[in-house]
């Protein structure tokens, strides 16, 4: 058997501009979804721990159900289903942001919850003893500690968001993956182009993972001082997640 395939790597370099543009869109999409789920995730976590039973149940159901769905199903559901019902015409970008946010809010709520639960009760008691009202003691004592604990895991979530965001290409968003699909259709060099894109994603993921690891080490160093009881709990390392993301 002769090995007939002639590699055309020059197509990749010729497409660098378009790919870079796609990469920017991937980063924008991921960053936006990350920021939104960072806020909403906290809200859901607080709802789960709030002293109001129906709210707890609602938040619990949300985290359980919404973590069970794949990003692809979210995308289809929002881009086609919700859009049809409410007559809203989502662009692929908006649909992608909503889908990624809904999924990752559920994940982040779990991270926040674990972090909040890891704060010793003594911290809250100390804050209340100082006469701080509940909301202030949460904002200035509990949350800052919990956030530090949660931060490395939250940044790891960004890794999953970036990977998952590639799915939005399916509904025509010209992110890194979407641009690549487009290029393949025009230039007929699937191996070269998909390899280039895969390598780009790997590089991006490795950088973000390294960032999360660095952050974790930094925080561990900063918080290890403090009072005797002020040892900040660390969540179990999630540097090696045990599932391939929401896909």
């Amino acid at each position: 058997m002769t090995f007939a395939y002639v590699f055309q790597w020059e197509i990749v370099s010729e497409s660098a501009g378009a790919l870079a543009h796609g990469l920017r869109l991937t980063l924008e999409l991921s960053a936006l979804a990350f920021a939104l789920s960072l806020v909403l995730g906290l809200a859901v976590a607080v709802a789960r721990l709030a002293p109001f039973r129906p709210l707890n149940v609602l938040a619990y159901v949300y985290t359980q159900v919404f973590r069970a769905l794949s990003l692809y199903i979210y995308v289809l559901f929002i881009y086609f289903g919700i859009a049809a019902i409410f007559g809203i015409n989502f662009g692929p970008f908006a649909a992608g942001v909503v889908a990624l946010t809904l999924l990752n809010t559920a994940y982040m709520a779990e991270i926040y919850r674990a972090a909040l639960l890891s704060i010793e009760p003594g911290q809250r008691e100390a804050a209340l003893a100082l006469g701080l009202p509940h909301s202030r003691s949460f904002a200035s004592v509990i949350f800052p500690q919990a956030f530090r604990t949660a931060l490395p895991s939250l940044v790891n979530q960004l890794v999953d968001i970036v990977k998952d965001s590639s799915v939005v290409a399916v509904i025509g968003l010209l992110d890194l993956m979407g641009t690549t699909i487009d290029l393949v259709n025009n230039r007929h060099a699937p191996f070269e182009l998909y390899t280039a894109t895969a390598v780009t994603y790997v590089a991006l993921i490795l950088v973000l993972s390294a960032l999360a690891a660095l952050l974790e080490r930094r925080l561990a160093r900063h918080v290890s001082g403090g009072s005797a009881g002020g040892r900040v709990a660390r969540l179990p390392r999630r540097r090696f997640a045990d599932h391939p993301g929401g896909a």
């Binding site: 590639s166 399916v170 690549t180 699909i181 994603y201 896909a247």
Partner: peptide, 9 residues
């Protein structure tokens, strides 16, 4: 590091 969809394609 490779997204599933990219890997699949």
């Amino acid at each position: 590091g490779v997204p599933l969809l990219v890997f699949l394609y």
